[in-house]
Design a protein around this nucleic acid. Sequence first.
DNA 1: ACAAAAGTGTTGGTACTACACCCATGT
DNA 2: ACATGGGTGTAGTACCAACACTTTTGT
Lengths: 253, 253
Amino acid sequence: MLDSFPARSASSAIAQFRDASASPHYHQGEVGLLNSVDCVIFGFYGTELHVLLHRFLYDPFKGYWALLGGFVHPEENIDDAARNTVERLTGLDNVYMEQVYTFGAVYRVPTERVITTCYYALIEVEPTLPKLSHEYGATWHPISQIPQLDLVYDHLQMFQKALEQLRRKVRYQPIGFELLPDKFTMLELRNLYESILGRPLDKRNFSKKILNMNLLQKLKEKQKGTSRRGAYYFRFDEKRYQELAAKGFLFEI
Amino acid sequence: MLDSFPARSASSAIAQFRDASASPHYHQGEVGLLNSVDCVIFGFYGTELHVLLHRFLYDPFKGYWALLGGFVHPEENIDDAARNTVERLTGLDNVYMEQVYTFGAVYRVPTERVITTCYYALIEVEPTLPKLSHEYGATWHPISQIPQLDLVYDHLQMFQKALEQLRRKVRYQPIGFELLPDKFTMLELRNLYESILGRPLDKRNFSKKILNMNLLQKLKEKQKGTSRRGAYYFRFDEKRYQELAAKGFLFEI
DNA sequence: ACAAAAGTGTTGGTACTACACCCATGT
DNA sequence: ACATGGGTGTAGTACCAACACTTTTGT
C-alpha cells in the first residue's frame, strides 16, 4: 500500500528554504524534466483479470492502446498524481495502489523527454462501468490478450512489470480481495487467483488452504442462477486479518 | 454477467479526448521537475552487510549522513545516472544494480521539489577502499546501525526499502555472490545470508541446500590464517547457473 | 596434546500434491 | 428423475527444521 504523505502544513515551515533569497544550493543550475504517471488498472470479471486501456490520440502512436496516465504537477505528490488519474477515469477513490517502477530512458517517448512512474491499481469493475463507458471510452482487456495489442511507448513493459509484481504480492498479502465485490463465492476467488498466477489451482486444496486461515466469513446466502445447488458467499474479514497479522500470522497462497 | 458489456468504438473514445485537449502535443504547457537518483550501495565485510554513506554538505542538513546521489540530466537515462553515481564514487563499473522505488512527495526535500529514484548496488568492498577514503570521504556503515544515524530527507526510508527488496530478491536469485570476492568460504557465504536476512541459519542445512544446487565449484585451495584446519574456497559457477536456469531450475534459499 | 574452527547425517514433523465421489436443488 | 455445478477427505511424498559429534591441523 502507498504510504500516506506528510500534511501540507509542512509548506509554511518549509517556505523559508524555497524562498528565492535563500543561500545557493547544490541543485542550482540543474534542469527540470517532465514527469508523469501511468496506471495499470486491474479489474476482474468473468474468469479473467482485465486491464483498462484507452486509445491514444497523438502522433506517432495515434490509435494505439495506452495505459491511463497524467503529468505530475509541481505541487502534487507523485502518488497523488496516480490516485487522481485513477479517480478521474473511473470515479473511484480509496483504491488499492502500488508503485511499480520508473521508466526513464531518454528516448522512450519520441516527442519529449518524459520520466514516467508506473503504478498498478486494483479495483472492483462493477461500479466503474457507467463512468467509463460514458465519459472516457476506456475499455477492459483480458490480460492474456494484451501482448497482442499495439501499445504506445513502453506500456507493454509497464503492464508486464505490474503483472509480475502483482503476481508476487498476491501470494503473500491478501490483496486479491480488492478485486472482488464484498461477497464472492469460492469459485470466483479461485478463478481470480488462477488468472493472476496464470495456472490452474486444485479446487479442494485451494479451498482448504484459504479456509484454514480463518480469514473468510461464510455467509448464509447462496449465489443464485449459476447452478442448481447454489454456492455459498464468503466475505473477507479485514478486522480478523489485522488481528492475526499483528500476532505474526503470514498470509500465503 | 459483465463479459458482454460493449466495447466503445475507437472513434467515440477519440472524440471525447479531443474535446478535452486540442493541442497537437499533449505535453505542451507541462512543467519540468528536478529528478535525481540516490544509491544504496551495499558491501559485505566482516560478518555484516554495510552501506556506503557520506556527510551531507548543505543546510539545513549539513553534517547529516546521506546516500550517494546525483541529478538526472536531460540526455541521460535514469539507470545511467545511477550507474554513473556509483562509478564516480567507487571507481567501479559493471556493478549489479536494481531500481528500488521513486520518492515523489512535494516537500521531501525542503529546498526544492525533487523527485528521486532510489537504486541499490551490490559491490565487492575490497577494490573500492583506496578511492573511497582518499577522494570522497565516504564510509561504510553496518546496516544494523543505520537506523540510529541522522540521515537527510527520506534517506532512511530509502535504505529500508532497498534492504527489504534485497532481502526478497536474494532468496530467489543468486545475487548474493555479487557481494563476495570470486573465491569465498561457506562460512563467509552463510554470514552474508544471515546478515541480509537478519536471522541465524543452520550451518548444516545451509551448506546442504547450497551444495545440492550444484552451482558452486569447490576449489582445491583452503583459506589460511582464520583457523587451524582451513576452510575450502568455493566459486560461484555463473555459466552453470545460466544452463540450469534455462532448463527451469529455480534458485531458492 | 590441545585448542579452534571445519565438516558432516539422521530423524520427525509438516505441508503439499494428487485424486473421485456424493450432495443439493431447479427444471 | 435427472442434469448441473457444489462441496468434501485421504494417502503418499517431499521438504524443512532440529540437532552433536568427529576431523584437521598449527602451535
